[in-house]
């Protein structure tokens, strides 16, 4: 599974962080950082993160 966040669209709301903290984090500068190839066991959490992103900036491939 590959995760792509369109960083031109992302506004660092951080909603994704609450759904999948293993994959998405807000760093101390308030910017989103994320794991691009998370483990398959995290699929449900990552799908939920993509659903709750207000900007719909998260795409999942594979």
């Amino acid at each position: 599974m590959k995760v792509i966040v369109d960083m031109d669209v992302c506004k660092d709301h951080g909603q994704c962080v609450f759904s999948a903290p293993e994959v998405f984090q807000i760093n101390e500068n308030g910017r989103l950082v994320y794991e691009a190839e998370p483990d398959e066991s995290l699929r449900d959490a990552v799908e939920e993160a993509a659903d709750v992103c207000p900007l719909q900036a998260i795409t999942i491939e594979g």
Binding site: F18, I26, G30
Partner: peptide, 11 residues
């Protein structure tokens, strides 16, 4: 308003 790094704490 702003302060994204504070969100997690208050939430």
């Amino acid at each position: 308003i702003g302060l994204p790094s504070a969100v997690a704490r208050y939430r």
